[in-house]
């Protein structure tokens, strides 16, 4: 667990540190955002509607699925239900990160967790492992990432079809997210127990993806990894860990 050691860092420098940590991801996000906007425009959404969706939902995976389902009249029930299924992994993510953000208090956490996208969460977990995860750092991650997603998706819709055929894979940009996730996994490395968690999660994810449509493979991998984590842990290590808010 993270410990607050020494003096608290200055709030504004923490905010800048957050911005610096998210910066490499912003570049990779631009083409994906433009493609999303273009696809949404093809389905008849206006640029303002696209920007609103990005601002309110702020969850790329579920937004792509929604646009895939989009038709006239809007099948709202199917779209809302699929958003819930695609985003159900957030429950695990917020439970895990919640252990590191308790010091923020309810008010700030309720604001911060509105923006709990995969990348924000992963970089926050990474930060929280080694040092104090401040609200300022968290919002430093969020601000440029959120503005980038909202503005670039709306811009993509404005440009319309121009970017629909843009293939991020052609420039290897589709690999930016797996690469950053690999880098983050190394940051979570704790030896043999981590290796077993990774093996279980990877195997369960691939098997599930082969046989089940949709985003279930993420939940399957997460649960398999958690089970292995629970049963390979040294019970002594967790005996004293008492956490009540």
């Amino acid at each position: 667990m993270s410990e607050i050691s020494g003096e608290m860092p200055l709030r504004d420098s923490d905010y800048i540190a957050g911005i610096k940590h998210i910066a490499p991801l912003l570049v990779a996000m631009v083409p994906i955002s433009l493609v999303f906007g273009g696809l949404a425009a093809q389905k008849g959404l206006s640029p303002l509607e696209v920007g609103l969706m990005s601002a309110v939902v702020f969850a790329g995976g579920s937004q792509f699925v929604a646009i895939d389902f989009w038709a006239s009249p809007v099948p709202w029930a199917a779209i809302v239900l699929s958003a819930l299924l695609v985003n159900v992994r957030h429950i695990l993510m917020s439970a895990s990160l919640g252990l590191k953000t308790r010091h923020m208090g309810w008010g700030k956490q309720m604001i911060a967790y509105m923006f709990l996208a995969d990348e924000i969460w992963a970089l926050s977990e990474h930060r929280g492992r080694k040092q104090h995860l401040s609200f300022a750092f968290y919002m430093g991650l969020v601000t440029p990432f959120y503005l980038n997603w909202v503005l670039m998706t709306a811009f993509g819709a404005l440009l319309g079809k121009m970017f629909v055929d843009l293939d991020p894979a052609q420039y290897g940009l589709d690999f930016a997210f797996p690469a950053i996730f690999i880098g983050l996994i190394v940051g979570f490395w704790k030896g043999k127990s981590t290796a077993m968690v990774l093996a279980a999660s990877g195997a369960a994810a691939i098997i599930t993806k082969t046989y089940v449509d949709g985003a279930w493979y993420i939940a399957a991998g997460a649960v398999a990894g958690m089970l292995v984590g629970a049963f390979t842990a040294d019970p002594e290590e967790f005996k004293g860990a008492l956490d009540r808010g």
Binding site: A205, A219, A222
Partner: peptide, 23 residues
């Protein structure tokens, strides 16, 4: 959250990241 439940929760970051990128 303590004991094995705690250990399961601490495995979440690695497990979720791996599940997302495995395919």
């Amino acid at each position: 959250i303590q004991g094995r439940a705690r250990a399961a929760l601490e495995a979440v970051p690695a497990a979720v990241l791996m599940a997302v990128i495995a395919p």
